[in-house]
Design a protein around this nucleic acid. Structure first.
Lengths: 146, 146
DNA sequence: GACCAAATTGCAAATCATTTGCATTTAAGT
DNA sequence: ACTTAAATGCAAATGATTTGCAATTTGGTC
């Protein structure tokens, strides 16, 4: 049984409709795919999970839209490939990852440094609307014993 | 007068020689260019600073080598472009940036969260050799008043 | 100071991720 | 069913980065 399967779809449908966007076949498939995975997926991974019934360009365009609507979140792991994760709960939107530099295994990290540091950096430099990107890298247990 | 001009060259020359690498014209030019800037430069910026006397491919190759030798450091700002900064002091190798999302102005940040957090994340997940990438984004003072 | 081998370069062609133009299709509301 | 804006597929374009290969350099040697 798929853990969260199709739970987000109605919510997504409403959000799309609210902006006179459409819940199309490809978009259903993309969201269903993201729902089954708890870690960020690349466009290519989404594409092969869906099964080529949908063009790559369509996925690129959909991800841009969904990102702008804050329904998905984009992550950059430093390789030149975008990864996307479904936003399941608003309060979980902010999180990071721990990526194995050897096998690319991804662990979700909920810890983050204190907001006080961010605030200090913002005010110290006069910047507003400050955010940050943070990802951790290391060698996972399995790869350490190779 | 250029602040740090040509100060790193001899050190770099030694490090290269130690690995039977060569200090060539293009490499001198690349390093000289990086020395004049305190913020990370893209390959294209380095190329146009040097003045086309050197092929783009050569710069790409040199940056890979210099990065592997830890003479330069690569940063990713989330756009699909690599940026490189000269490593001036070993003790300053670890730092981050604050980037204006409007005008791309870059401010160097020496603050970082406590190593304790990193250590907790590492041990908590059994990972070794842990590192992290962290960059801040916001709107700089100048762009706030536009 | 010439000589050699290995390292490096320039140039062009190849990759890879992502974007875009355009004609055709489709979801949503009436 | 009808209309229309939104979305899609396909192919071609972009942009960053990489790579093959022949021609040049650099650093060490005699």
């Amino acid at each position: 049984m798929k853990p969260h399967s199709h739970r987000a779809q109605p919510k997504v449908a409403d959000r799309l409709r609210a902006e006179s966007r459409k819940l199309t076949g490809p978009r259903r498939a993309i969201i269903a795919t993201l729902e089954e995975q708890s870690h960020p997926l690349t466009i290519r991974e989404i594409h092969s999970a869906i099964g080529t019934e949908c063009d790559l360009a369509t996925i690129y365009r959909s991800m841009h839209l969904l990102e702008k609507m804050r329904l998905v979140q984009r992550f950059d792991f430093g390789d030149a490939v975008a990864r996307y994760e479904l936003v399941r709960h608003e309060d979980h939107e902010h999180h990071h990852h721990l990526i194995c530099t050897d096998c690319s295994k991804v662990v979700e990290i909920d810890d983050c440094f204190s907001e006080e540091l961010e605030r200090r950096i913002a005010t110290g430099n006069g910047f507003a609307q400050i955010t940050h990107k943070l990802e951790f890298f290391g060698v996972c247990p399995a790869c350490q014993s190779k």
